[in-house]
Computed example of a mutant assay.
Amino acid sequence: MNTPERFTLDSGTDIPLLWYRGQPVLTFALIDRVHQRTDGRAKKTFYENRDRFIAGEDFHLVDFAQRSEFRTFGIEVPPRGLTVVTESGYLMLVKSFSDDLAWQVQRQLINGYFRARRIEATPPAGLPNLFPGADQPPTARLDAALLRELRLISPALAQVYLVEMGITPEYVAGVLDRRGLALAATTAPNTAAGTAAVMPNNAAPLHYLRERLDRMADFSTAAVWIFLPDTWAAVCQPYDARDTLIRLRELGYLLCAPNRFTRQGPRQPNSRRRPACYHILKRLAKQPTAATVETAPSTETTA
């Protein structure tokens, strides 16, 4: 029996009905479970075709700060975030599943799971509404005074507040699109004159990184900031960490070995271990001018 919190397939498999930003979503683990696939199959398929999925439309990256919302369903959000797929992302992901069970499960999820309607709780008479403006556009929910205070305390807190109120990159892009406008295209210098490389869709803006790199780095030298992978994922939130690395590499701000993003970090205390880390050049902190053309550093440069 299906309830507002659970969904049961004809096979008897019972899964939680997950909601994110007002729509039903699925995790990779849930997709593997309902399709009776080996653990990790859906995730592997997603990352093999990552460039075909659009952030904010086919999938979302749930921030670690929202872990309490998913914990009620028995789902843990790791520090690096949790990827969830929408209806369109699910359909793209299971295109290669062609067995009889896959066809049955797809029909049930599309006609049932993704057609579910969320039942919003109504506060009893006489009690204040703790979530005013839930039916209003995101800009109408903002408290300007609170936003100013948060910006004075920490830009990161202000960023979290905006995201919680619904002011996300996808929302901004949608508003501009409806008004016939578009975000300025981001390009990178290329070795061939007159050409430009297209940047990844969900890379963190440089001004956003400049506010966070120095205070969040795990290690630092005169020339570079050094980040462990989990720390780097936290730095880039709510943007995609890998897309951001690709962008920095194209712009010449990432010091890396050939064919991979990482280099060895400092030796750990009381250990010979030198973990794989991301090395970001500190010249990123300097605002580049229009006349300056950044070139990629040699991979032989020492940190």
Rank of each mutant, 00 (worst) to 15 (best):
M1V: 03
T3C: 00
P4M: 05
P16C: 08
L18C: 02
R21Y: 09
R21A: 12
T27G: 01
F28E: 00
L30N: 01
L30P: 03
I31T: 14
D32M: 00
V34L: 09
V34D: 03
E48D: 14
E48G: 15
N49F: 04
V62N: 03
V62C: 14
D63Q: 00
F64V: 11
S68K: 15
F70Q: 12
T72L: 09
T72V: 14
F73A: 15
R80V: 13
G81L: 07
G81Q: 11
T83C: 03
V84K: 09
V85D: 05
E87W: 07
Y90R: 02
L91D: 13
L91I: 05
L93V: 15
V94D: 06
V94G: 10
S98Q: 11
D99F: 08
D100H: 12
A102F: 01
W103Q: 04
Q104F: 04
Y113A: 01
E120L: 14
E120N: 06
A121T: 14
P123R: 12
P123S: 11
L127Q: 11
N129V: 12
R141A: 09
R141N: 05
R141W: 05
E149H: 03
L152N: 06
L157E: 13
Q159R: 06
I167R: 05
Y171A: 08
Y171L: 08
L176F: 02
R179W: 11
G180Y: 04
A192P: 02
A196R: 15
A197I: 15
V198K: 13
M199D: 02
A204M: 15
P205W: 01
L206H: 07
L209Y: 08
R215D: 13
M216S: 13
W225P: 01
F227R: 01
T231W: 12
W232V: 04
A234E: 07
A234H: 02
Q237H: 13
A241M: 09
L245W: 02
R247K: 10
R247M: 15
R249H: 15
G252I: 08
Y253P: 02
R260W: 02
F261D: 13
G265M: 06
P266I: 05
S271D: 04
R272H: 13
R272F: 11
C277F: 08
C277H: 00
Y278G: 00
H279A: 07
L281S: 07
L284S: 03
L284H: 02
A285R: 15
K286W: 06
A290E: 01
A291V: 03
A296E: 10
T299F: 07
T301V: 15
T301S: 07
A303S: 04
